[in-house]
Design a protein around this nucleic acid. Sequence first.
DNA 1: GGGGTGGGTGTAAACGATTACATAAAATAA
DNA 2: TTATTTTATGTAATCGTTTACACCCACCCC
Lengths: 329, 329
Amino acid sequence: MSSIDQVALLAKVSVATVSRVINNSGNVSPETRQRVLAAVERLKYQPNAMGSLLRKEHTGMILVMLHSVDNPFFAPIVQGIESYAQTNGMNVLISTTYGDPSRESHYLELVKTHFVDGILLIANTMTLEVLNELSTRFPVVQVLEYLEDSEASRVTIDFHAATVELIEGLVAKGHRHIAFVHTGLEHIISTQKKRQAYVEVLAKHGLPPYEIPGPHDFGYESGAQLARQLLETHPQISAFFATSDLIATGILSTLEAMDVQVPKDKAIVSFDNTVFATLSRPTLTSVEVNGYELGSQAMDYLFRRIHQKKYRDKVCLTLPYTIHHRDSE
Amino acid sequence: MSSIDQVALLAKVSVATVSRVINNSGNVSPETRQRVLAAVERLKYQPNAMGSLLRKEHTGMILVMLHSVDNPFFAPIVQGIESYAQTNGMNVLISTTYGDPSRESHYLELVKTHFVDGILLIANTMTLEVLNELSTRFPVVQVLEYLEDSEASRVTIDFHAATVELIEGLVAKGHRHIAFVHTGLEHIISTQKKRQAYVEVLAKHGLPPYEIPGPHDFGYESGAQLARQLLETHPQISAFFATSDLIATGILSTLEAMDVQVPKDKAIVSFDNTVFATLSRPTLTSVEVNGYELGSQAMDYLFRRIHQKKYRDKVCLTLPYTIHHRDSE
DNA sequence: GGGGTGGGTGTAAACGATTACATAAAATAA
DNA sequence: TTATTTTATGTAATCGTTTACACCCACCCC
């Protein structure tokens, strides 16, 4: 690996001049510039990032913590982040946590040691203490999921309002027995908000809630299994409210296997509006969050937080959502 | 941000001693260690990564270049990579390229400047020159997709053999008019290999090929659209060979809309064996690659390439695949 | 001719760690 | 007691850059 000194030597100039050529900073005569560039080419010189970053305040890297790379739901968020980053000269790196706190805190080291300038948390699972400690000292923004009483900033949607709208819709269509089907990830705020809204709306109309604890996964299987259990014990259920459309797809498969017609016999509504909502038959009514907007807004705040020291106050942004009514209700 | 000098000052020791405590290297008396740790705690000292990495040969980071984070197909590969990395003390960072060469070369800078130690390319689109230049100078491994005549190492599967097996299966079932439906991403090696095998098998049996150029996307829509076009012009087609199961899902939706029964009237076989293959109705016959194994094997080679200078020869690994026969044929 | 101005370049001090080497003190051996 | 090893610590060089500062020289303007 050739270093800047070797280039300087070969071009018969000082390292300062080489640096000026590389970074297009300061004044360099055309002839000298040529000599330097020739030497760079000769030696295939590439500046070492650690050397230069040591002198700078920022690395220009930001880290996105993601559950995994197989969830279509997160893709638009990541795109929003990357698009903002690109136009502002930052680089986005992604790490996957699979909901494992130890993996999370492992990657947090990257911001603590200033390897990256900031972190965007998508569906993090760390404790309140860890998060608060982190967010007071480093640029951090929570995206979508968040810890309610945390000091950390966040960009999210109003899960409560969206759920109220969904359930009220079902009630208006005459449903009196509506079940709540979720992933078993009790602690995440979206599930809590959805459950709370669900319970409130039912209570308001004097209707009974139906819910059984589910396995801890993201999806299809648990939806199928929970639907089966619910219908065995409570055949009067006429509508399902699923916390994700992958779960809804699972419910659909159970209903199909039981020869139950959707939406004639049972209705289904869900969240996320991923490709599964339009791919399934019937298509699913689902709540869409504008992931792209969510991502770029989060990035916008993070960017300001990184570059303006005064910009330290907690920010809570709530973006609008859209309900797509389709054939499942 | 407190630095090591401030800790040294507060603990009344030299920076060398602080460093020894932090890294558990060399001998430090228990009392001194305590004083240093107390100072570290007081100042909330975190070593700056750039400072220490400047002295080291490696950063312990490797970069995975991915198309996007919404493809379930890549998830096992990433998991295999991460699992290997974790047990070997490395960190995995992911970047998305969306097939954009400029984004690719942008992220390549990270290995050139020694910000990361090596790169795993999943479905890269760079030119042969760029890749060769890169791979001779830096640790790079191609995963799954690759450039045929490149100097760069790769870990992949035998697309040709898998396709032969699929098509021969269809022929054995009596199909005489089999269409080839792909994404329009002509240049990628898997598409080429699949087409070549498809053409060979048909030729061997004296059967006609059916193929029309498709739109450049990954999926569902193009599958649906191409199936419609193919059947309009060639109603005799009785089986579809799709290069991905997302495409196959699109084909299915068209057949459903046309009231064509699968597999009674038409058969479908595909690649990837993602969640879409089991979610769709009917379920899809699909080729499974062992992504986890693919990822960890690739990482294993990359790791050795990084840490043993002699380990420079090109390696081409071909891992086995599995065909899951399901209800679509 | 003297005093600016500014372009082109070099010197050397950072940045924040690690570590080879030196040294002093303590423990051990003779 | 003295010689020898071991332990604990400090000094300073080093990693590869960037950049403040100093310098020289050419040019221009009175």
